[in-house]
């Protein structure tokens, strides 16, 4: 099958578009999370998403609305992580661990109560970007617009908070508002990303493109832009390669992200060694 033929399918176009939008969103939010050493929040939220999907399937909501139904639970959980990370007695990584354990535990118990692991739950665990529906595409587009507006409008605040939260507070920046928005948007991105890479690999979309971009040692603004470029390229290449080689799209997208990271890391190391 030729590339033109692959791209002529409506479901492939929908998958490509949704994938590009979600990957762009994750790669933007990921820059702030990685730099604030909160990379694992994607993993935590993915586990919560697993629990939320199990709850939704257990209740018996139509699979068409699973994404919409899981959103509030994941958003609330993201705020719980934020609240716990602010606690003086619980470290950020432990807070993420607590919430993600609850997500997984709830998921396993509910899956067992509903008669074992069913196909639907597995499809969310490993993702299937080609099954993205119109609602999810629309949600991805809305999220993309919101994230772009959020970053443009709060760019200076986000930059300051990412650099040093205390310093940002001393400038009168409402860091609480910035953090709440960042966590809620990340929660929505994590839910939508489960169709792209699957719950198991959501955090890869949040971590790998920013990390690749950071290897280039460029300005903050350019780090965000380059992160988005790598994320979009990985989704496009991933879908095409997965189609051509009959591989799962989610895993292929992540592997391509890893290849990008290794190439850029290698180039950056060579450049540094030559510079010495």
């Amino acid at each position: 099958m030729s590339l033109g033929e692959i791209l002529s399918f409506a479901f492939v176009q929908r998958a490509m578009l949704a994938g590009v939008l979600i990957a762009a969103v994750c790669s933007i939010l990921g820059v702030f999370l990685v730099l604030r050493r909160m990379s694992l929040i994607g993993d935590g939220l993915a586990h919560i998403t697993f629990g939320s999907v199990a709850v939704v399937l257990f209740i018996g909501i139509s699979p068409l609305y699973i994404t919409l139904a899981a959103l509030p639970l994941v958003m609330i959980s993201s705020l719980a992580i934020l609240k716990l990370t602010r606690s003086k007695k619980i470290h950020g990584d432990a807070a993420i661990g607590i919430v993600s354990s609850i997500g997984i535990a709830v998921g396993i118990v509910l899956a067992s109560l509903s008669g074992g692991y069913n196909v639907d739950l597995f499809s969310y665990l490993f993702g299937n970007i080609l099954t993205v529906n119109q609602t999810e595409l629309l949600l991805s587009f809305i999220l993309f617009i919101i994230v772009i507006c959020y970053v443009i409008y709060f760019y200076h605040d986000l930059f300051a908070v990412t650099f040093d939260e205390e310093l940002a507070r001393s400038m009168g920046i409402k860091t609480k508002r910035i953090n709440i928005l960042l966590f809620i948007l990340t929660a929505v991105a994590a839910v939508l990303a489960m169709k792209v890479t699957g719950i198991m690999l959501v955090s890869a979309l949040l971590i790998l493109p920013p990390l690749t971009s950071l290897q280039l040692s460029i300005s903050f603004r350019m780090t965000i832009i380059v992160s988005v470029i790598f994320a979009i390229l990985s989704v496009i290449c991933g879908i095409i390669v997965s189609f051509l080689l009959n591989l799962p799209a989610g895993g292929t997208i992540v592997i391509i992200n890893v290849i990008f990271l290794l190439i850029i890391f290698g180039i950056s190391r060579c450049k540094n060694n030559l510079g010495k």
């Binding site: 730099l35 200076h156 930059f159 650099f163 400038m171 920046i173 950071l214 903050f220 780090t223």
Partner: peptide, 17 residues
Amino acid sequence: LNNHFPGTVREIVQLGV
């Protein structure tokens, strides 16, 4: 200070609301 922070000196000087 995070030594991997990608802000240039110029960006840091302008840091703030």
